[in-house]
Amino acid sequence: MASTGIILVPGGAIGNFLGGFIVSKLKMSCRSQMKFIMLTSIMSLLLLILNIFVKCERVKFAGISEDYEG
Results as ranks from 00 to 15, higher is better:
19 G>L: 02
67 D>H: 05
43 M>T: 15
26 L>A: 02
37 I>K: 11
24 S>H: 07
42 I>W: 10
5 G>F: 12
45 L>P: 01
17 F>E: 04
40 T>Q: 12
14 I>A: 13
6 I>D: 14
13 A>E: 06
70 G>R: 15
32 S>D: 14
50 L>P: 02
10 P>I: 10
1 M>D: 09
29 S>H: 01
50 L>G: 04
49 I>P: 01
66 E>D: 14
67 D>A: 13
58 R>L: 11
57 E>D: 15
60 K>M: 12
64 I>Q: 11
64 I>D: 05
55 K>E: 11
5 G>K: 09
22 I>H: 01
13 A>P: 00
11 G>T: 14
1 M>I: 06
18 L>H: 07
33 Q>C: 08
30 C>T: 07
34 M>I: 08
55 K>S: 06
39 L>S: 11
45 L>R: 03
23 V>A: 13
15 G>R: 05
55 K>T: 03
11 G>Q: 05
12 G>Y: 09
14 I>Q: 02
30 C>E: 07
50 L>M: 11
25 K>E: 05
35 K>G: 01
60 K>P: 08
35 K>W: 04
19 G>T: 06
53 F>R: 10
32 S>C: 01
10 P>G: 12
37 I>H: 08
60 K>R: 11
26 L>H: 00
9 V>I: 15
25 K>P: 00
37 I>D: 10
29 S>D: 05
32 S>G: 00
1 M>P: 04
20 G>V: 03
3 S>N: 15
21 F>L: 11
41 S>F: 05
3 S>V: 12
18 L>E: 08
9 V>S: 14
59 V>N: 08
42 I>E: 02
64 I>E: 07
37 I>V: 14
16 N>W: 09
55 K>N: 04
1 M>L: 10
24 S>P: 00
56 C>M: 09
11 G>M: 10
36 F>P: 02
58 R>T: 07
44 S>H: 01
62 A>I: 10
48 L>P: 00
10 P>L: 10
23 V>N: 02
53 F>L: 09
35 K>Y: 09
47 L>D: 08
44 S>F: 07
28 M>S: 06
32 S>W: 06
62 A>L: 12
35 K>P: 00
33 Q>I: 14
56 C>A: 08
19 G>C: 06
37 I>M: 09
22 I>M: 06
18 L>P: 00
65 S>T: 15
68 Y>A: 12
47 L>P: 01
28 M>G: 04
10 P>E: 08
62 A>P: 03
38 M>Y: 13
36 F>S: 05
8 L>Y: 11
66 E>F: 06
35 K>S: 11
42 I>G: 02
41 S>I: 00
